[in-house]
Design a protein around this nucleic acid. Sequence first.
DNA 1: CATGAATGAGAGTTCATTCAT
DNA 2: AATGAATGAACTCTCATTCAT
Lengths: 215, 215, 215, 215
Amino acid sequence: MDSTTASTRQRRKEARPAELAAAALALFVEKGFAATRLDNVAARAGVSKGTLYLYFDSKEALFRAVIEESVLPLIEASEARVVANLDDPARLLRALLVEWWECFGATPLGGTCKLMISEGGNFPEVAAYFNEQVIGRWSALLRQVIEAGIARGVFRPGSPEALRQMVFHPLLMQSVLQHSMFAGPPGRPLPEQYFDTYFDFILRGLGAADTQEPR
Amino acid sequence: MDSTTASTRQRRKEARPAELAAAALALFVEKGFAATRLDNVAARAGVSKGTLYLYFDSKEALFRAVIEESVLPLIEASEARVVANLDDPARLLRALLVEWWECFGATPLGGTCKLMISEGGNFPEVAAYFNEQVIGRWSALLRQVIEAGIARGVFRPGSPEALRQMVFHPLLMQSVLQHSMFAGPPGRPLPEQYFDTYFDFILRGLGAADTQEPR
Amino acid sequence: MDSTTASTRQRRKEARPAELAAAALALFVEKGFAATRLDNVAARAGVSKGTLYLYFDSKEALFRAVIEESVLPLIEASEARVVANLDDPARLLRALLVEWWECFGATPLGGTCKLMISEGGNFPEVAAYFNEQVIGRWSALLRQVIEAGIARGVFRPGSPEALRQMVFHPLLMQSVLQHSMFAGPPGRPLPEQYFDTYFDFILRGLGAADTQEPR
Amino acid sequence: MDSTTASTRQRRKEARPAELAAAALALFVEKGFAATRLDNVAARAGVSKGTLYLYFDSKEALFRAVIEESVLPLIEASEARVVANLDDPARLLRALLVEWWECFGATPLGGTCKLMISEGGNFPEVAAYFNEQVIGRWSALLRQVIEAGIARGVFRPGSPEALRQMVFHPLLMQSVLQHSMFAGPPGRPLPEQYFDTYFDFILRGLGAADTQEPR
DNA sequence: CATGAATGAGAGTTCATTCAT
DNA sequence: AATGAATGAACTCTCATTCAT
């Protein structure tokens, strides 16, 4: 019963839902919800099809779980970081975006963005949840940083929401594309110079004072 | 039987494939390929399900046709415009992007991008075709303009491909999002100020000398 | 469109639901609802499995249709007969019961009684419908005849409902048993003397004046 | 480990099969064989699903056991009573039927009859066994009493088998209906007057001389 | 040309049965 | 002896595809 006597069976049982959700995420991202066969999900997780139903009530419940479990950890860490570093918005912005890319956008979790773009229309409540808990909170963070930058005169004035899109969408589109069509060899890193060009571009775009400093 | 009805029929007959493809595009974009029912496509086009098979061999053939018919017109017009106006890259860039948005991104055709992001992995040949004929040619155009700007000293030096992404992806993401999840009322226009902020941002990002000129 | 041009296809289409319901009734009665396979229903009706779904939304809908279509005709004919012949209750009772047996109890329709006994608990709304529209109306008819007989002094006094059960349940049980367990060769008629013994018994049981007359 | 707990365990162990069979009987009667889930049987008996397989080889073996254990006790007692009391057939008949109702028909065991009506067709050997060991012996008893009555001139002449059905089927149908569709509050007793009307009716039906004696 | 009734392979889901613990 | 996680065959239901009309 206690942790020391946990059997192999027990350990598997506790790990199962996460394993199954990971397998499902990969296939949902690759093929879409409707085109993903539960046989394939089960096979990828190394279990039989029936086992899926021990942990999830239906294919749709699996989808919801995949989204819900994929999204929360990063946001909270980032929110904590923001409140502590608003005095150097340019550096903070760069740190947030790099972290987003490395911990989310470039990982399998990043597939959730492609997945919600593809399937959101078929699952309005899941889309609403994702919008509130993930997109909304993350967007608010970025707007906060941009507003701080404008307030401090580091960035030029402008609509924080529009500027947020200019800043974030190139990186988001990178993530979406890497989980789509031309994924190439999976895990292929961005070209070396990408982040240099990216940050130079968005800081110039924001009218940041010191865009000339080399990296 | 008489000439009048014959010509009416004739017109219908010739228009049919395009009507069917338009109905299919709308539903493929809204629901995805696998979740779209041919019954619904037929109903939206006002024909019976069997009629679809008079014009398309299979659901997949319909998908290919949808993609193939959606993409060519704009590119050729844009290509012609580019060769004629390379001497003012900033103005040309703005004109191209506005045109792309108004003639493609904001129209039902813009759904094609969302569709290829969602379904490209399931249709590699279609994705390859789309990549070559649309993405490749359009990207080449934009790179050409950016390179011209750099060569003329209007834009700062940098990787043309990376810069193309910074310039184009915010707009592309707008189009994708409008055809996805949170489409809101369909056809909702972008906020007035969006293009002002957008062009100001990307021209600053490109290091363009005169970013203050009004649109 | 009109009846003369009705095609083979058309004629089949109109007859299909009844054919399918008849096949389903036979198998539901024989095996029960849960143990009946839709494959078998389709095969017995000479169609494919998918065809069932052109006419019935689900297995349960098929069950409802089977019950609802099996029950109404007899009742109405019997109700009409009753109001016209209440002045000779003994003869009327005999006529009603013979008719019930020949037009319902001994036919495939009689299986509905066995079916509702077996499955009523799993389909409360269907059972309620059957109870109101069939059992209730038929029981009311019999009670009416018995009450008329008591009022005229032809039958001895007693609870009409209890007497109805004594009168009807032997015949009902015959029908149920013939559609159950020991059906023997289907359509096996009752032994010659059964009805003689039956009517003699129930008329004596009702205290009818002239139970001594031989048939 | 000590003798006290060992004996408790022992008692549980020996009682288990009967507890499991009782749980199964209740659910088989309520829902039918195919619609009864072994999970539910196990839950109702307070054990896990796997435990069922320690005592019964399969769901069908459980069904056989349920039937076989439900039937024998009453018959033997009744058979003994019959041989000792054939000299007063009317009184004996009444006693047998009251006993059948109180010890079988009105108890959970009475559900066996409904169950065999519902499922007999799917289990021919079980049905044959039930037919021989229960129905056959019980019917023979009743016929014996009826024949004795006829021989003594207490009942009018007639086919003993047909008369047996007239006599027994109203009571049997009561039992079947109480375990079916409209069971109402379970265990609801028959109306007070039911047995009065019932015995009056069948003794009149049998042409018994003295049907006026109160119960 | 156009229809829509019919098909049947293939999907999601259930549940009797097994077996490592 | 008892458990319950795991299995996979078998079910209901769907829908792209066909073809007689």
